[in-house]
Write a protein that binds this DNA or RNA. Structure first.
Lengths: 230, 230
DNA sequence: AAAATAAATTGACATATGTCAATCCGTTTT
DNA sequence: AAAACGGATTGACATATGTCAATTTATTTT
C-alpha cells in the first residue's frame, strides 16, 4: 500500500461511469476528499464484514470481488477493471461490506468518504441516476453469474469462465492468466483439482492451448457449446 | 386474470416501500395510470425476455421470481409478498425482463407504466432513494441466495429453504406449503427426487413433521446447523 | 545456483448425486 | 363411485465429482 497523489479528479472523472456527471465544484470537492491508494497483488482492498466507510473509484489494475461462503470457501462473483465505480451492494441498506475485494494485479484507486459521496448524489440528480445504472449493471452481472453456477456439468462452468476471461476481462484471445488456479476454482465454484483436470481435457481435445498461463482459445464455438449445453 | 378496481392508491401507497413517499398530486397521478390485475395460481405475471413496460406494486398473494436457465430448468431466486415494489433488475439498463414472475397463490397487484414511474422518480427525490434502497434489498437477497446455492451438501440447501419459507415467507412455524415439490426443487436447484428423499430423511430423523404439506419444524437449531455446516 | 516454499498436477478411491422407471397417492373428472 | 390424471415418492443403478495423498512443476528466497 502506497499513498501519493499522482492522479487528478479533473482528469479521471471524465472516464468514470458515475463521476462523469459531476460539475466543477463537485469535482473540486472530491479532489479534496479522496485518498489515492496502490494495492499490490494479493492485498485486500475491502474486506467483507467490515464497516462501509468509503466508495471506490477504480483507476488501474485488476481485482476480484468475492463472497466468503461457509467453511472458509470463497466465491468470485466478478472482477473489477478500470474505470469502475464501486460502492458495494446494499449502499443504501446498511453499513457493512458484504463482499471482499482483493487485488490480483497492482491496483490504483481512490477512496471517497461515503458521506461526501452521499451529499453529492443528493445535489446532483444526473449522478444519482448514473449510480443507479451502475448498480443495475452489477445486479445483472450477479444474475448472469448465478446462471453459470447452475450449469450442471462442470466442464460447462470452466468453458464459460475461459470465455468470460478472454472476452470481458483480458480483452484478447491468446491471453495471460494473471489469476491463479485457485481463483479459477473460486470463480467456477469447483475444487481446484477439478479445474486442473478439465483444463487438461480441453488441451487434450485441442479446444485450447496453454503454456505458462498463456491461454489460447482455439475453438471458441466448441467452448460456447459446452457452456450452453450445461 | 381479472380487471376491476377495488383498491385505491391513497390507501395502498401508505404501505408501499416506495410509493409511501409520493405527494397527493403524484398519488392521484398513479391512481389514474394504474392497472389492477388478479392472477390465479400458476399464471405468469411477468415473463423473462419480454419487454419491460410496467413496474409492479404487489398488493396480495404469493408469487415466485425465477430465472430460466439452460435446458428448460428454472431457478427460484425469491418470492414476492405484499407489500412489495418490483421493477425487475436492470431498470435503468435495458428494456427486457430478465426474470419470470409466476403466481403461486392468488395475486392482486397494480401495474404502472414505466415512464409514469420514471417521471415521478425524477421529481421526487425521496422516492428515488426509496427505490434505490428497494433495489439494494433485492441485491442483498440475491447475494444470500448465491451463498445458499454454494452450500456443498444438498441437505444444507433443503434445510435452508425450509427455514427461509417458515421465517420469511409464511411467517409461522407449522406452516402450509403452498409451493409444490417442483418449486422446492427449483428453489434449491436440486432435482425433485432429491428433495423428496431429503425431506423424508428430515422426517425420519424427527427434525420436521409433514402431513398434507403441513410442515412443522421441530428442531430449528438442527436445521440451522445442517444449513451452516454446508 | 541451490534450497526452500508454494502452486499445480496427477492418481486412486469412496460416495454423493442425478437419472430413469415404477409405484403410490391425492385430486379432479365424468 | 370409477376412472383418469398429475404430482409425489421410492427403488435401482451408473457416474460424475470431491477428497486425500503423492508427485511434479514453478516461484521465491538465501
Amino acid at each position: 500500500m502506497e499513498f501519493n497523489k499522482t492522479l487528478t479528479c479533473a482528469h479521471c472523472s471524465k472516464e468514470s461511469p458515475v463521476f462523469c456527471f459531476l460539475n466543477e465544484r463537485q469535482i473540486d470537492h472530491i479532489e479534496r476528499n479522496r485518498i489515492e491508494v496502490v494495492f499490490n497483488p494479493g492485498e485486500t482492498i475491502m474486506k467483507g464484514g467490515t464497516p462501509k466507510t468509503h466508495v471506490m473509484s477504480f483507476y488501474k489494475g485488476l481485482a476480484k470481488v468475492s463472497l466468503e461462503g461457509k467453511g472458509g470457501r470463497s466465491y468470485i462473483l466478478g472482477f473489477i477493471r478500470p474505470q469502475t465505480f464501486f460502492s458495494g451492494p446494499g449502499f443504501f441498506f446498511d453499513e457493512k461490506h458484504r463482499l471482499t475485494i482483493t487485488a490480483i494485479e497492482e491496483c490504483k484507486l481512490c477512496l471517497i468518504e461515503k458521506d461526501v459521496f452521499y451529499e453529492m448524489m443528493e445535489e446532483n440528480f444526473k449522478m444519482a441516476f448514473a449510480f443507479m445504472e451502475n448498480s443495475n449493471r452489477f445486479i445483472l452481472n450477479l444474475i448472469h453469474k448465478m446462471e453459470t453456477f447452475l450449469i450442471k456439468h462442470h466442464h460447462g462452468r470452466v468453458a464459460d469462465a475461459l470465455l468470460h476471461l478472454s472476452k470481458d476481462i483480458y480483452h484478447k484471445n491468446p491471453f495471460t492468466m494473471t489469476i491463479s488456479r485457485k481463483d479459477l476454482a473460486d470463480l467456477t465454484a469447483l475444487p481446484k483439482e477439478s479445474v486442473s483436470r478439465i483444463l487438461h481435457e480441453f488441451i487434450k481435445d485441442q479446444i485450447i492451448t496453454m503454456e505458462n498461463n498463456e491461454v489460447h482459445i482455439l475453438k471458441e464455438d466448441t467452448l460456447k457449446h459446452i457452456s450452453h449445453k450445461g
